[in-house]
């Protein structure tokens, strides 16, 4: 089973996780820029975080044979802090970077006017930099937040096939399916979705435009939930090809719209040979 986790916060995971993910079949992932538990108070800490997403973290992932990409944005929660707002001025430079395959996570947290403004501005940035968009839907008042997100996306004029609406569930999947946007699901141990409910949604809505992620971060989460979902699909009678579509071909198709996915085996992970190995990183 080859797996592309389209949404996972590796910055908060250990090398044990990378090892287990590789063993489970994970060969590529996307790490969206988001908040970090402790609210940031200055632009400088965003710079360091963004640099890590295009520097240290892809290097670390490559040591374990996994291709790391990321999305960049000012997240909705911190969009409410005026001290963080100038992050928007930094984004154009980061949105040109090789490993950046979408604008995200954008969207709503508490649905404030500040969030409205920052969301709309970043959708415009996605158009300018020719990138797809990853939209986070709020945990509180989710159904209303999802509808409002779809309205904002529609008003932006972005083609729906370049947008994924994430963290969906039984209640919010319907309108997103109708909109033409991609549907994202985060499979968690206790919150959001679990793998059996995910299988039921796949039965009802099919396997197209579906993205399944573990969204693993610093909270209670499991980076192998993608694999568990694949297993649950097989147990429920889906074919190997269905699993491959959901866990590999779909994320490749969605993020591939950036033109920046690199899916070869990282040279870093292999043996040491003269030349390439030094620059791509050598095993210690």
């Amino acid at each position: 089973m080859r797996i592309f986790d389209p949404h996972i916060h590796m910055t908060s995971r250990t090398t044990d996780d990378y090892e287990r993910m590789y063993q489970a079949g994970v060969r590529a992932l996307v790490e969206p820029a988001f908040w970090l538990g402790q609210p940031r108070t200055s632009v400088g800490s965003f710079v360091d975080y963004f640099d890590g997403l295009v520097g240290w973290e892809p290097f670390r992932a490559a040591q374990f044979g996994i291709r790391h990409h990321c999305t960049m944005a000012l997240n909705p929660k911190e969009a409410n802090d005026p001290r963080c707002r100038p992050v928007l001025d930094l984004l154009p430079r980061y949105l040109e970077k090789d490993g950046v395959v979408a604008v995200g996570e954008v969207g709503y947290d508490s649905m404030t006017p500040e969030e409205d403004e920052v969301f709309a501005r970043q959708l415009a940035l996605a158009a300018e930099h020719d990138l797809p968009v990853l939209v986070h839907t709020p945990h509180r008042d989710k159904a209303a937040g999802t509808r409002r997100s779809l309205d904002v996306v529609r008003e932006s004029g972005l083609p729906p096939e370049r947008v994924v609406i994430d963290h969906l569930n039984e209640v919010t999947v319907g309108p997103v399916a109708d909109s033409g946007c991609w549907m994202g699901f985060s499979i968690y141990p206790d919150t959001k979705m679990d793998e059996d409910r995910m299988v039921a949604i796949l039965r009802e809505y099919g396997t197209e435009r579906m993205l399944v992620n573990s969204a693993a971060d610093w909270g209670r989460s499991d980076p192998l939930k993608t694999r568990r979902t694949g297993e649950a699909m097989l147990a429920a009678g889906f074919t190997d090809d269905d699993v491959d579509q959901v866990l590999w071909r779909n994320p490749v198709e969605f993020y591939g719209q950036s033109g920046r996915l690199v899916l070869d085996v990282p040279a870093d992970a292999g043996t040491l040979f003269e030349g390439n190995s030094v620059l791509r990183g050598t095993p210690a």
Binding site: V262, E274, G275, N276, V278, L279, R280
Partner: peptide, 20 residues
Amino acid sequence: GRGPLPVRGTLRRGRPASWT
């Protein structure tokens, strides 16, 4: 592209041919 770049003597400068 990102592949290895074959180089001749001068570019090596006594070190491995570590250009991409």
